[in-house]
Amino acid sequence: MRGEADAEPGAGRARAGTAPASTAPASTVRAASRVAGRAATRAWLFAALIGAWWAWSAGSTSVYFPPLAKIVRTLWAQWAVGPARAQLGSSLEHLVLGYAIAGLAGIGIGALLWSLRYLREATSPYLYFLYVLPAPVLVPAVITVFGIGAAMKVVIIAFAAVWPTLLNTLDGMRGVDAVKLDTARALGMSGARRTLAVVLPAAAPQVVAGLRNSLQVSIILMVVSEWVASTGGIGYYIVTAQESFDYLGMWSGILMLAIVGGAANLLFVLAENRLLYWHYGARAVEGRA
């Protein structure tokens, strides 16, 4: 997951040197084969590991380590066409909602604190305290207030995941080049326009780094919140399966979780490459100069 995520922006960098204009068929074919080649250089290890697991577990009779083939069959039967689909749906709902709130609140509050210096200086020690506080310890408190329904899970995810985005937004905005701020003033931009049209885009690479971090925290907290007190979700499914000695079910849940995490990261990277096209492009040019 991590390796994949790190490699993608690099791919963006390699592409960025060429102007986006050329669309001739020959270059499209070349581009497609480049993409395929890049995918191959990245996917071989993944394929090899899956293959090794498949071969190594094929003859297994242990109930704890069932053959991968069986796990995949269970995965299909449970999660694709079976009853666990509802669990997947509820997990994803909480994840998407909690992460969206964390992202928007993180950027919004970060921008607000950046523009209100006195508030920022007064709050910054607490922000860093909350940032380093392991979020799972808050679960009991949140349960006390919000019960064990969907709201509790969304609140936990949003609360835990807001900090990386918030602090990165604040840092990123503070680090914006003074010349860019002067330029914005020289162009006669109002304060609000300066923030939205100059400071926020200039800070975007760091904001996105924060959002990536928040995504990982969101996924972790999605599972943790379902473990602790819940009647649904992937995390709940895995724990229940393990407690009822349904090891096939447990493994299928773990695999499902890996798929969710991988897919979320992939989507993130695709969005990042599009949003920060200019950043990787400009960096590639700097690197050449």
Partner: peptide, 27 residues
Amino acid sequence: VVFQDYGRSLFPWLTVRGNVDLALKAR
């Protein structure tokens, strides 16, 4: 105003048109 360091004063997330357009919008 034209600043010395174009690399720092132009907005890299906007195209050339976008940079000029922002100036017009702001006014």
